[in-house]
């Protein structure tokens, strides 16, 4: 069975279900459908967030960023992230076109966009503890097999196996909240099946339609013993963006 990329994006971005808990046995496809049903329905999105990078000793570094994203006609997502603070990284901008099909980094000191080659996408992005691939959610745009491993009182445990050879992860495990149908925890296993990253949703917001938005996400990089907590400060849906917003010319524009 295959998990469509849209479904998977929604699962990562925390998409859920507003219906009361269905204790009757659900199939894996039904669970995923419920998750998709609860995803915010938007074409464009603007987010202002705080990114807190926490090292092994608990020392924190705080970065503010603004992010724009857009669902493209071909079901992919493009995004643009710019750091607003601290001053040492202010203006650094990452452009991801169509789920990481192309990734560009703009460093004001270089004053020209640097393309990040596909094979370099697993490198860490600007000390955030997240890779370019994580920032672009490139691992979503792949074909997967999925299976329900376990069902408890509170959650479903789902195993997702990417089929494409060029993915960074051999296996992904999702813990889906049975009440609200969102992936509250995601584990990423590398090619040797070692657990390398964990993503957890600590805080969500549910709107009147039952659509769920994550407000606090935490990535744990187990290899580098680093955590990245993303706190959403503001979020707007369906904002107007120029047709060519997710292109090279936006990278160097002084304000967005």
């Amino acid at each position: 069975m295959k998990l469509t990329k849209k479904m998977f994006i929604f699962s990562i971005l925390v998409i859920f279900f507003s219906l009361p808990t269905l204790s009757l046995a659900m199939t894996i496809d039904e669970i995923i459908d419920k998750m998709e049903e609860n995803s915010p329905d938007f074409t464009t999105q603007k987010t202002t967030s705080e990114m807190i990078v926490i090292d092994e000793k608990g020392k924190e570094e705080v970065r503010e960023a603004i992010m724009f994203s857009q669902k493209e006609d071909d079901d992919t997502t493009s995004s643009l992230i710019r750091f607003l603070s601290p001053k040492s990284v202010k203006g650094v901008t990452l452009l991801n076109i169509k789920n990481g099909e192309k990734i560009y980094l703009y460093l004001p000191a270089y004053d020209k966009p640097r393309r990040i080659a596909g094979a370099s996408k697993q490198e860490e992005f600007m000390g955030t503890g997240l890779s370019y691939e994580d920032m672009s959610m490139d691992y979503q745009d792949k074909e997967y097999t999925k299976s329900l491993l376990e069902e408890t009182e509170e959650e479903y445990k789902i195993e997702v196996i990417p089929l494409a050879e060029d993915t960074s992860y051999k296996k992904i495990i999702l813990w889906v909240d049975k009440d609200k149908f969102y992936a509250k925890k995601v584990e990423f296993y590398n090619k040797t099946e070692s657990l390398t990253k964990i993503m957890e949703i600590h805080k969500i917001e549910t709107d009147k339609k039952g659509k769920i938005t994550p407000l606090e996400i935490e990535f744990s990089d187990l290899e580098n013993k680093k955590k990245t907590r993303i706190i959403i400060k503001e979020m707007e849906y369906d904002i107007e963006l120029p047709a060519d917003f997710f292109s090279l010319r936006t990278l160097t524009k002084p304000t967005l």
Binding site: R114, R115, A117, A119, S120
Partner: peptide, 14 residues
Amino acid sequence: FQGDFPGIEGATLR
């Protein structure tokens, strides 16, 4: 030029 090039796996060529 910059980007991926065949035979140079894992690196960005500029």
